[in-house]
Amino acid sequence: MVADMTQATPPSLEHVEYVLRLGDNALILGQRLSEWCGRAPVLEEDLALANMALDLIGQSRLLLTHAGRLEGKGRDEDQMAFLRVERDYRNLTMVEVPNEDFGRTTVRNFLFSAFQVLLWEKLVASSDSELAAIAAKSLKEARYHLNHSAEWVIRLGDGTEVSHARTQAALDYLWPYSAELFAANPTDDAVSAAAIGPAWGELEAAWEAMVLPVLSEATLVVPARTPFKTFGKFGRHSEHMGHLLATMQYMQRTYPGATW
């Protein structure tokens, strides 16, 4: 943190944007996973989902605090999490769509945590020392999320006819959203040039190499790429995002200025 505060040149807008994307992904998926509390198929999964939600909320706190400092407008983690308008959130659309069922939740956790693992592995060597430290901590968590969700994708895909059909439907629904992960953009170019972090598009081949064998073992068919496009990480979200924010921001919006 100190290193960033004393940088000779102020952090670039792209740098802030990049960290916000990371923080918002963790925040919004953490919010979604916390909706499972008390509702999972078995008690052990209730605990596991709460645990993953807790890891992600923890990551979001570190990342949003860091983004707030880089931004230099005096915003803390809660102002970042609760008091922005929808267009200012930078999470992937994939993490904001509803949980639907345990199948979709599990496939999403799998696709996203594989991406997170690859990202954190790179970010451990970030020129932003604070981000590198957050990456080192988060990498361990993401690896656990990946192992856990991969095991469940296989169980569900290779389980019963019903579970196979539901998991295939989840993959069919989510797969088109995965294109957004790797879409090129100027933010990534600038951040990559400054050795802060990888352009996400660089991770696509490694991500596919990670997820495809598991999907195959789960006997699932990977859908062909379609022209479907989403733009959550650029601040244009789905219809679901406003409802998620209405719930999440309720207290901060109702009692402005209160400390909790």
Binding site: S34, D46, A50, L64, D78
Partner: peptide, 20 residues
Amino acid sequence: TRAPSLKRKAILLAKVQDEG
């Protein structure tokens, strides 16, 4: 899902996980 701060959200999540 409506906890008023991230710290309180994390504490409540951990607590409910403990109950489970």
